[in-house]
Design a protein around this nucleic acid. Structure first.
Length: 492
RNA sequence: CGGGGCGUAGCGCAGCCUGGUAGCGCACUUGCUUCGGGAGCAAGGGGUCCCCGGUUCAAAUCCGGGCGCCCCGACCA
């Protein structure tokens, strides 16, 4: 059916790579571990940015931009933070190149005379540089809260990379806030996690679990990490966004203090939260099929593709003229619509091509349709065909897109729920984890036990769900008395 | 960093074992016919065979060294 795409059940990893590259979301770059995000992928990311940015603004945040380079000494100030990131940092040591010859070949080398006195780290995340600035900006309780976000690229020198899911350089947003009290910071971290949940479900149609990371999975330097966690079609979990209660760890390290109403100096309470281009990977793996991408209408760069069909030149002219008129009407309604006027490929090719690119709705327009003043709308989800009259087409298309958006979430939720199991015994636990999906089991968080579980099952605690009623019983691994269940899975 | 695989036209590959004019499919260009599920025919264009060195009359092919990429694990969003 789909040329050049490995079917999911044959090789899921290869399917993923095929879909990402063939649908022209991204391509490999000359630099190992990096990728080029192509126009289709960039348009998708821009749509996601637009949605998130609006939600950040609506919750009182402002955008700012902090430098790519961080003084080496900054990273060292917060002990846990250094430890978390030291192993994956790119370091700038020189500021100039020098032309030279090595073995008779012209090349360039770092100019030894340009060695930096203090080396610079390419940001793996920006806590240190941002909070160093907060220290300059905050004096009084009246300066709080500070609610900032930045859209940026970051670099983490990962050993193993995968397009969108884990690349050496990636795009993301990182929110950074400072508050007068811990309660307020926790509220902020929880509120932004809720923004992520809403965005994932309502925009990306990806159902997510929300909860708390265990200490061994939390962000280096945080008191608590909250996360949204999604399940991919192969049964592996994907951390789709995190929000951190940083406590006063960075405030102490960077001396970020304010004077409260009674004149006492206090350290501020910080939060940080981020989602990245990894969400594109989540979108691909959550909704895609063997024909390619399936994009939710709300973020699809192209929401509607009109494919004209003709035999004779005369038909071609008529069909194209009507196609342009329909396109303009839909565009006037605010929809992103393309009329595929290419005459070097036939309609069948165009169908497959727009499906590959994930366009949610295709409108087929042929001589027969012109005759009866209608188009045939075809859903990307299941190829359901719905004839739509030209009269009122805007409403019909809008409601088909709305339904598609909803169906996509429903389908993903059903898949997720079907792949979620409660288990009671260790045997069930091990077996369920091998099958894939979310496995809910009573657990007493403990780093050593988690390491052992990971060793033996390749799975990790994905999160401890929020707001669950107590469910006391023996810990699935140790038998120790546990109050609650944790969600386990093998993860990306 | 360990294990596996691969570097030959834009993409996917064959050729290598057994050295002798560099090939196939797709894509591309031109023309004609097609067009409601990835069109057909005809003619064409396109290559430092990853790099360096060696053996040889002759290397994509044999030998040595290097580099790169992908996939699977350990680390991570």
């Amino acid at each position: 059916m789909a040329k050049d795409i490995t079917p999911r059940d044959q090789d899921y990893a290869r399917w993923y790579t095929d879909v990402v590259t063939r649908s022209t979301l991204a391509d490999y770059s000359p630099v190992k571990g990096c990728m080029v995000i192509r126009p289709h992928g960039t348009a998708l990311w821009e749509n996601m940015q637009r949605g998130l940015d609006g939600m950040f603004k609506a919750t009182g945040h402002e955008n700012a931009y902090f430098p790519l380079f961080i003084p080496k000494s900054f990273l060292a100030r917060e002990a846990e933070h250094v430890e978390g990131f030291a192993k994956e940092c790119a370091i700038v040591t020189h500021t100039r190149l020098k032309a030279t010859e090595i073995d008779g070949r012209r090349t360039v080398v770092p100019d030894p005379d340009s060695r930096l006195e203090e080396e610079l780290i390419v940001r793996p995340t920006s806590e240190t540089i941002i909070y160093s600035m907060f220290a300059r900006w905050i004096q009084s309780w009246r300066d709080l809260p500070i609610l900032l976000n930045q859209w940026a690229n970051v670099v983490r020198w990962e050993m193993r990379t995968r397009l969108f899911l884990r690349t050496t350089e990636f795009l993301w947003q990182e929110g950074h806030t400072a508050h007068a009290t811990h309660e307020e910071a926790i509220d902020e971290a929880r509120r932004m996690l809720e923004v992520y949940r809403t965005f994932a479900e309502e925009w990306l149609a990806i159902p997510v679990l929300t909860g708390t990371k265990t200490d061994s999975e939390k962000f280096a330097g945080a008191l608590t990490t909250y996360c949204i966690e999604a399940l991919m079609q192969d049964g592996k979990a994907l951390q789709a966004g995190t929000s951190h209660d940083l406590g006063q760890n960075f405030a102490r390290a960077f001396d970020v203090k304010y004077q409260d109403a009674s004149g006492r100096w206090e350290h501020v309470w910080n939060t940080s939260w981020g989602v990245s281009t990894r969400l594109i990977g989540a979108l691909v793996m959550c909704h895609g099929d063997d024909d390619g991408l399936v994009l939710p209408p709300r973020v699809a760069p192209v929401q509607v593709a009109i494919v004209p069909i003709w035999r004779s030149d005369a038909q071609r002219e008529t069909v194209l003229a009507e196609g342009r008129a329909l396109r303009d009407r839909l565009a006037a309604r605010g929809l992103s619509v393309r009329l595929d006027e290419r005459d070097n490929v036939n309609p069948g090719f165009k169908f497959a091509d727009w499906e590959l690119k994930g366009v949610p709705l295709r409108l087929e327009l042929g001589p027969r349709d012109v005759e009866s003043r209608q188009v045939v709308a075809v859903s990307r989800l299941d190829r359901t065909k719905t004839p739509c009259a030209w009269d009122g087409l805007e409403d019909a298309v809008a409601s088909l897109l709305d339904r598609l958006q909803a169906e996509l979430l429903d389908r993903a939720r059903e898949r997720r729920d079907a792949a979620t199991r409660d288990v009671e015994t260790r045997d069930e636990f091990v077996e369920a984890l091998a099958d894939g999906g979310f496995v809910r089991a009573r657990f007493v968080p403990d780093a050593e036990v988690e390491a052992q579980i990971q060793q033996e099952t390749k799975a990790t605690v994905r999160l401890i769900p929020f707001d669950e009623p107590d469910d006391p019983g023996p810990c699935v691994w140790t038998g120790r008395p546990a109050q609650r269940r944790a969600v386990f899975a093998r993860a990306y």
